[in-house]
Amino acid sequence: MTDKTTSIPDALPTSKRLPPSRGSRKTRTAAWLFVAPAFIAYAAFVLAPLVMSFYYSFLRWDGIGEASFHGLTNYITVLTDRDLLQIIGNAFQLVLYFTLIPVVLGLAVASAIRSHMAGRFGTITRTVLFLPQVIPLVAAGIAWSWMFASTGLVNQTLKAIGLSSWARGWLGDFVWALPAVGIIGAWVLLGLCTMLLVTGITKIDPSLYEAARLDGARPWHEFRYITLPGLRQEIGVCITVTVIAALASFDIVYISTQGGPGITTTVPGLEIYRLAFAHRQVGLASALAIVLMVLVLISIAPVQWFTRDKK
């Protein structure tokens, strides 16, 4: 008898949670009607252009005249042309600044504070640190162009502390322009990452730290074995957001350096814009666009894998 009761399909409790008559024709029609407007908008202005991008990427086309089939030539160009490779490399160098600085600093602050920022101080902190998220990236670009200008605050500070020889026009410097752009991105993303990590660390049970201390853990151990694993999800979020911001950057570069000097700060986003609308190489621009999309996807996938799945 008992056998019989336990052999009741275990599927039941889960399938019970299924909505009523979800399979029914009426519900299906309703579902389509509810989803349709969003899907049409999405299809018209994302999916269709994406398909067109893919199609263009096999063409040689100046955007006006006749287009001719070009095979994989555009892709081969993207992956072999030295300038284009440098441009893609620039984007990955930006990842270093956009991602590393906010995450490392955010972790430092979070593991130092390790509690909820309450009261007036917390409110002020949140407000200030989120300001860069609220303003247009373009405004951040202009603000920092001014910071990095020859008479800007950066040089002013360097001179004040006796490092006049370091002063330079940062954004016009072949070596320093890209790091300078990276700093702008780091500045924009710093507050968001810090707040995410501080919020994340308050969710770690404080008794874990006490238990670790009783087990003889040093501060480094606490960080390594409690803080880092506990913040895995938040770190994943920070990395995802910042990596996308770096690889798909456009606004900041467009405003602060226009990709110069030379192509030292040109990023794929800017190059797509130039190729398509200034150089009239729609095919090549589209191939670069597809490559950029794929690069973002394969950069994000492992982060998502490491930070979410194991939960």
Partner: peptide, 11 residues
């Protein structure tokens, strides 16, 4: 994760 730049030309 789609960068807007990926579709800006056809748009």
């Amino acid at each position: 994760t789609l960068p807007f730049e990926a579709v800006i030309t056809p748009l």
